[in-house]
Amino acid sequence: MKFFFASTVIAFAASVASGSHAGDDLSALKGPYLGQTPPGMTAEPFAPGLVNTEKWGDAGSFSLDMNKFYVNRWRHTRDAPEPEKVTYERVGDGWQKVVMPEGWRRPFPSPDGKALHYGVQYKERTPDGWSDMKSLGPAFEAIDIMGLSASAKGTLVFDEWTRDGNGTLRYSRFVDGKREDPQPLPNEINTGTWNAHPYIAPDESYIMWDGERESGFGSNDLYISFRRPDGSWGEAINMGDKVNTDAEEGGPHITPDGKYLFFNRMVPSAGGNGEPQSDLYWIDAQVIKDLQPE
């Protein structure tokens, strides 16, 4: 059951959209990371009752300056109410909830903040703000993209939603001022029955994603491939029991300050009844360094 990760195709916004309005005063939450106590080497739910809810599936990410946290929510069942679109914005040393207008979307930003990606579309920063929406091109429009991320060099990595769950992870480089057509990542990465939601490190030293393989902990797990000295990608490494369980894990990404790994996990619904729901977890990014081959 992979329904919850499809919703993460909408992620990250550069600023609060027009028409939003202030909501709950969360000034009692002091300090960075939405006032939460950072985790160590054990993955913990992020902001229970604030970001993670009992009603909906929940995901989220920080803005590049770490002063906003954008929440993405969706319904696990038809009986659930329509989810609220919210961000949390830092005000002084505290935080404030901001309810977003209908139709608001969150893009995937480039690490330098010069582009905002919305699947096959994007905006570029201009002296006057943001450009009109542009298309990555016909070769991208033929792919049903769920998750996408960009490196500092402009390389894009992204997935493909298919009904059989066997979509291909692809990349596209920005070379000599031009965007290359998508190319499949190698078999070291594109193996198994489910590969989705790739994240490429800003310096392109590794790629993370969620995949399903016979050697995994059960259902889809988080995997990582490190760049070899010759520029090729190393064999996929299961990220281990610090993040993976017999439940579904997916949607990995690193906070813009490089300190924490965020990901989603399907957990039993409140009271143990009904469909499992997706909660957002975080763990110290040291988990990645510990996996890097010597």
Rank of each mutant, 00 (worst) to 15 (best):
H21G: 15
E180T: 13
N190Y: 04
G258Q: 07
V120A: 09
G57N: 15
A47T: 04
K55L: 03
F262S: 05
K134M: 14
G49H: 10
I145A: 01
A47F: 03
Y199E: 04
M239L: 13
D284I: 01
D221K: 02
G35T: 11
V243K: 00
F12G: 05
T255R: 08
G49L: 08
I143R: 03
P109M: 14
S63N: 05
I224D: 06
A196E: 06
D128C: 05
M100C: 14
K259L: 10
D230M: 12
G19K: 10
G177T: 11
G19V: 13
G19Y: 13
K68S: 14
Y260R: 11
G274Q: 02
M133D: 12
Y260W: 12
M146W: 07
D112E: 11
Q121K: 13
E89V: 15
A47I: 01
T87E: 04
S131G: 02
V175T: 10
I288Y: 08
R106F: 03
D210C: 06
D221G: 00
T77F: 04
N220C: 06
D144R: 11
S7H: 10
S18A: 12
P127T: 01
F262H: 04
R163W: 15
P276R: 05
G240I: 02
I145Q: 01
Y199K: 12
W56G: 06
Y122F: 15
V98P: 10
D246K: 04
Q36P: 01
G113E: 13
I288A: 07
R106L: 10
D241M: 07
D279V: 00
W282A: 09
D24Y: 01
K134D: 12
P32T: 13
M266V: 01
G165Q: 06
T255Q: 04
E89F: 11
A285M: 09
P182I: 13
E84T: 12
S27L: 12
D279L: 04
T162K: 14
A59G: 15
P229G: 10
Y118S: 11
W56V: 04
W130D: 09
G165V: 09
W209A: 03
P45S: 11
